[in-house]
Design a protein around this nucleic acid. Structure first.
Lengths: 350, 350
DNA sequence: CTGAAAGCGCTTACAG
DNA sequence: CTGAAAGCGCTTACAG
């Protein structure tokens, strides 16, 4: 019943026949080929025929002919483990969509060797993707395999050791320094940093930023750094240690939100109110934690969405330019904004 | 330097030439075409040639010929908003990988109309995907557009109103009932449910399951249900109300983990210890919340990964069977396991 | 302004 | 056991 579109899909030849023109002409009008004039009336006839038949060009066939699949591949390391991989994908996908590109995704196991894995890359290459973005769970550097050499590619969360590929990373260092700056503006003079005892090179930016911020205002950071396991228990112990000092800090800046959660408990056990008696800041803005805490946690956000966008935008530019990595690679540090909530206030005492 | 593979990729013709055979033969040996005997020695020669040239078949060309792209599309509604969309994708991806299928992903804005959007579907159809899985943010039902009619498809998180497509959903009702069962076994006789005031049909399974569980042991549930906004503040208020009753419950079963977070605070303010004085259970197992709480939260997990797997497995079966939806649709309810942590214990009093 | 024809890189009856 | 040839659905010089 009704105007059911035929199950067997119409091809360009059907449209041509229906409009009484050649397939060449159909192709020209539907693709609006530059430098090609077609009579107004013919254009209308072709469009009408295409419309009527519900014609959709077969992208596989077009890709085969043009050597461009208009598809890009995103290989994501531990797509599930990375808490916000979803946001990277979303940013990448939105951008790809805007550029008319399809986005294929493949998971890759965490690489012990800091090397992009050939297997997942090949799955894409065989499908003639126009470019690849490789998202790691934040390594420092990665060495890119030869397979990736011949195709536009960009890295998320890691730098190319050989400096051939563009890469985008979060500027955690500046974000952390900004937190210290904010705390200082609030009047804090005694700011501690609860660091992660897991010494991953990639995350050292956070302590570094803390140090930067402290030194910028002439404070000595090192006496106020305590490390713990990067979870609530570790944060609890470190905060307890800090708060039990004879001259406790008025602000606790934590390596991540989970540690901040532990710091809340340490404060509560000591009858310290947040933020009146002690200010607490986290890192990651890992939903749903910061907004579920009481008071809600001031923290710094990771620009996952923006990194995804940047990567695809850069990839698209490279694809269009047709340069598979011959010009100098550029690397981009995206800002980590501090998101202000309730856990920070001016210190009550001096 | 070294054995760099030529930048210009070898095609099947190059392999044929190199091995001194026809492309037909190359195709047969590389694909191991059934019912085709090739001399042992020829096989070796072809394999060697392919290896040496680093031959990788062009999947676009093959797809054009065979009318099978060996790619499936996953359209995810609000990929970022759904907290664990990443796990759905991971499950789907792992399964697709095992089946030799590529997985393309596209985001779709939340649909106000409960209808699968034609636009994202077309992006896939034009690329000749072999099938589509559509993941919603848990609707009750969805009406599938005609575009999806002609191709294998399966739904995640929603049922097809016309009962043509298979679908997979979390069995929240049973999961919730299981929680009550567990609480009863611990000796609880007074179990309250903190419900969400947002009445979304899809999530009603949680209260229903609570009711099921209560009625199964002869308890009356309704006096113990209090609703609030589904966040920490809402959980706090509801828990406060419950705990301030003259005969407070010994266990608080919360609609979600965030509400449980609020319940913790209400308990703490009243000097009630968890789980000694009051047991608390959440729902969602939304990382990193339950493991960051103190004590860690017993909650029920959503089978995101498994739903992704199930969807792709079912889709693959349909594709292989070549039946685009003519046989009766089947719907699957996947178990929501309760994950036991520290927030539950036997009640101290009676 | 429009069309006939070659060709993208494969697979697959069909012959031999 | 092996190969010549047609064809998947498009795009694109090249002619007219």
């Amino acid at each position: 019943m009704g105007n059911q579109v035929a199950r067997s899909k119409a091809g360009i030849r059907d449209v041509a026949k229906h409009a009484g023109v050649s397939v060449t002409t159909v192709s020209h009008v539907l693709n609006e080929t530059p430098h090609t004039r077609v009579k107004e009336e013919t254009v209308d006839r072709v469009r009408a025929a295409a419309e009527e038949l519900g014609y959709r060009p077969n992208r596989l066939a077009r890709g085969l002919r043009t050597h461009a699949s208009e598809m890009i591949g995103l290989v994501a390391e531990e797509i599930a483990a990375t808490p916000h991989a979803g946001r990277i994908i979303l940013g990448a996908q939105k951008r790809a969509d805007a550029d008319g590109l399809a986005l294929a995704i493949i998971n890759s196991d965490l690489q012990r060797e800091p090397t992009v894995p050939p297997r997942s890359v090949h799955a894409f290459l065989d499908r003639q993707v126009d470019g690849i973005v490789y998202a790691t769970v934040y390594h420092d550097e990665v060495v890119v395999p030869p397979a990736l050499q011949g195709i536009p590619a960009v890295l998320i969360g890691a730098r190319d050791r050989d400096e051939r590929l563009p890469s985008v990373l979060p500027d955690e260092r500046t974000g952390a320094a900004d937190v210290v700056g904010m705390l200082v503006e609030y009047g804090h003079r005694s700011i501690a940093f609860i660091d992660s005892a897991e010494d991953i090179p990639a995350t050292r930016g956070r302590v570094r930023g803390y140090r930067d911020g402290m030194e910028a205002v002439g404070f000595s950071p090192d006496a106020r750094i305590v490390a713990g396991t990067p979870d609530a228990a570790g944060g609890y112990r470190a905060a307890a240690q800090l708060l039990d000092q004879h001259d406790p800090p008025t602000a606790l800046f934590c390596f991540d939100d989970r540690m901040a959660m532990g710091a809340y408990r340490a404060a509560a056990e000591r009858g310290l109110r947040i933020p009146e008696d002690v200010s607490v800041v986290g890192f990651d803005d890992q939903d749903p934690l910061p907004t579920s805490m009481h008071p809600t946690l001031t923290t710094v956000a990771l620009p996952h969405y923006e990194m995804g966008e940047w990567a695809v935008a850069t990839l698209t530019a490279r694809i269009r330019a047709g340069s598979p990595g011959d010009e100098p690679a550029m690397s981009c540090l995206l800002p980590c904004p501090v998101v202000v909530r309730e856990s920070v206030a001016a210190p009550a005492r001096r």
